[in-house]
Structures are given as C-alpha cells and as structure tokens.
C-alpha cells in the first residue's frame, strides 16, 4: 500500500490531485462522472463580494493545444455562495477550497471573512491573478507591493489555510511568491492563465469579446513547470502546481519540479473523469518506481 497523502502545512490531502478553480464548477457538475471523495480537494468557481455577470460572449477560443477564456469571474457573489451553494456541497468528503477574487482590497477582505465562518471550507485560494477582470484581479498579482498588501489585509481576517494563486504574467514570479510568503500565505498555487489573444484573419476581428484572455491547456505546461521549479527554489511554503496537466505523467512532473499537490483544470473539459484517472495513474507510477511515499517525489528532480 503506497502513501498518496500530502500536507499543505496543516491542510491534509488524501492525495495530491485537486481541481483548478473555474474548470470544475462547484463540484456538482462532475458528480455524474466521478466520485468526488477520491480527490485530494476541489476548488470551486471564483467567488467575489458581489454578483458579477462576467464578460459578453464570445468568451472562449480554441488554440493549438489549449484554449483562451475570458469568462470574467461570472458568479452570484459570496452571500449567494454561503446561503445557496455551500449547504448543497458541504457534505463532500474532500477538501473544498473557495477561490476568492475581487476588484478592491475591501472586497477580498469581506469575502474571505465570510468564508472563514464556513465550517467545511478549510482553505481559500486568493486569486490575485485573474486576467479577465478590468480592474483589480491580476493587477494585484503583478507587483510585489500590491500582492503583499492584499495578502496582509486578508490574513488579518482569514484564520484558516490561505493559498495564494499567482499570475505568470510577471517578470519574476519568485519575487511575488516571496512577497506573499512574507505576509503569511500558507501556500502558493501557480500558474493562473497566461495572457493571450486570438484573431480571425478572415473577419479581421478578435475571437474574444475582450480581445485578450487567459491561455490554458498543455500549451502552457512548460512555462508552468519552469515557474514551479523557480518558486520551489525561492520559498519555503508548499506549492500547488497547475498548468496544462492532462494525465498522471504531467502531474508527476509538477511534483518533481517541487509541487506538493497539483490542480487539474482544462483537462476536465475534455475528459470529465480525468482527475480520478490521474489519482490511479500516480499510484501506478509509484508502484512501478517502487516509491512507498509520494512525498519522496516532491522536488525530487535530478539536475545533473
């Protein structure tokens, strides 16, 4: 029997496989396809202080080995989450993390404080990296000073595990990671989507209503792996790696680069059962390589 359990500081996961926010709804959308209790954790859709309609259609464009999205954090607001959605999903036998986003610091703080009161939500993922909201969002995550400021403010009201989701749209992601670590982040997740765009040459128009959007899928995996490796060598807090993971082999690569856990995002759209398959695949890999404890894989990259 191999050990698949990992710990993000005080947060225990039965295995390192989580889902990425914005690709997994509230978990309910996947109940027909998989048993959610087989996952290490699920990250529910980005939640903001107030209701957001999101961006106009079209919001999505397929790209080589990936996709661009410009959903723009469509959600009904944190009060709706607490009163309507939380009671429906709180019984899930897995860690439920809420991705918290905002336009101004007060919104992040108020949203985090409300979720702090929910018994069955052991952690939040602070989203300072969404490229699809006009104000705030990624702007917080692209300078050390503003990243530190929002984490410091949320830290004062949020008492459980505080994960901070980092943007790859920066010159040096390790500086941002160090800044949020210094303000009390318990872990960092990376990467959010890469800012990109797509054009229809025939119509001379952009394919997204917002012109630019967030790129995800296997196309971003090498960039994500590189950033996880860099951050692993820069901070002490655990790292959750994501970006184009399609199978168990990809997940193992992120762990070797330094991730304690991984998130599966875009792959859920193509195979709604992929997360369970990745858990099984990781176990197979461990047996094949005679590894008893998955923690032995974290950062085990052998650089010559």
């Amino acid at each position: 029997m191999v050990n698949l359990g990992v710990k993000l500081k005080d947060l225990s996961l039965k295995n390192p496989v989580m889902t990425a926010s914005g690709t997994f709804g509230f978990g309910e959308e996947f109940e027909d396809f998989i048993d959610l209790s087989n996952l290490g954790g699920i990250l529910v859709k980005g939640t903001t202080r107030h209701h957001r309609e999101g961006n106009p259609y079209p919001r999505m464009a397929e790209t080589p080995s990936g996709m661009l999205n410009a959903v723009g954090l469509q959600n009904k607001g944190v009060e709706n989450f607490c009163s309507e959605i939380y009671p429906r999903i709180k019984h899930y036998d897995t860690n439920i993390l809420v991705n918290v986003s905002g336009s101004v610091i007060e919104d992040y703080v108020e949203t985090a404080a409300m979720i702090n009161d929910l018994e069955h939500i052991p952690a939040i993922e602070l989203n300072i990296s969404c490229p699809n909201v006009k104000e705030g969002g990624m702007a917080f995550g692209t300078s050390c000073a503003s990243a530190a400021e929002v984490v410091k403010a949320v830290r004062q009201v949020y008492k459980k595990h505080l994960m901070v989701k980092l943007s790859p749209n920066v010159t040096d992601i390790t500086e941002i990671a160090k800044a949020v670590e210094a303000e009390g982040a318990d872990s960092v997740s990376l990467i959010n989507t890469l800012l990109g765009m797509a054009i229809d040459a025939e119509t001379r128009k952009p394919l997204l209503s917002t012109v630019t959007g967030g790129l995800s899928g296997p196309a971003v995996k090498p960039v994500a792996l590189r950033m996880v490796w860099q951050v692993f060598n820069a901070v002490k807090i655990p790292i959750v790696g994501l970006g184009g993971i399609m199978n168990a082999k990809d997940a193992i690569e992120f762990m070797l680069a330094g991730a304690t856990a991984v998130q599966i995002g875009t792959a859920n759209f193509i195979d709604p059962q992929v997360t369970e398959k990745i858990v099984v695949g990781i176990e197979d890999y461990m047996k094949r390589h005679n590894i008893q404890d998955i923690n032995d894989l974290i950062g085990a990259l052998q650089v010559r």
């Binding site: 914005g22 690709t23 709804g25 959308e29 996947f30 859709k45 996709m67 875009t266 859920n268 759209f269």
Partner: peptide, 8 residues
C-alpha cells in the same frame, strides 16, 4: 469547452 455547465 465542457458542454455540462462547468466552464461558463
């Protein structure tokens, strides 16, 4: 992208 209400 998904067809079942996850990606919005």
């Amino acid at each position: 992208a998904c067809g079942f209400g996850a990606c919005l």
